[in-house]
């Protein structure tokens, strides 16, 4: 059985590290709020650690039945212009998304 890990209160630095991983620029207020609330939630979630799961296979899918694979055939998909058109600052005619300069 996996050993339970008692969550320590999150520091602002911990939350900032998670925010970097999740690509979120949090405000200091949000960081402070989340460090408290995440500790609260993980303390509540500790009860999951108490369950004996020796030999239990983790559930990876809600459906018991095997997935039906579709035939490997080329079928029409969304035209490129329509996929690009809703993107901010895109060039649908060229079929391109636009981002700030990445190279040089």
């Amino acid at each position: 059985m996996l050993r339970c890990r008692v969550p320590e209160p999150f520091s602002s630095a911990d939350v900032d590290r998670l925010a970097r991983l999740a690509r979120l620029a949090l405000t200091p207020d949000e960081t402070a709020l989340f460090s408290r609330q995440l500790a609260d939630f993980l303390a509540y979630a500790e009860q999951v650690q108490q369950v004996d799961t020796s030999g239990i296979v983790p559930m990876s899918h809600a459906s018991g039945a095997p997935t039906e694979l579709r035939a490997d055939e080329v079928v029409p998909s969304l035209p490129r212009e329509s996929s690009v058109e809703p993107a901010p600052g895109a060039s649908p005619a060229a079929g391109l998304f636009k981002v700030p300069r990445v190279i040089g």
């Binding site: 996996l2 050993r3 339970c4 999951v48 369950v51 799961t53 239990i56 296979v57 983790p58 990876s60």
Partner: peptide
């Protein structure tokens, strides 16, 4: 392992 995997095991239960 401690959180996600464990949760998926309890989900089986």
């Amino acid at each position: 392992d401690a959180y996600y995997l464990k949760a998926q095991q309890v989900r089986t239960l």
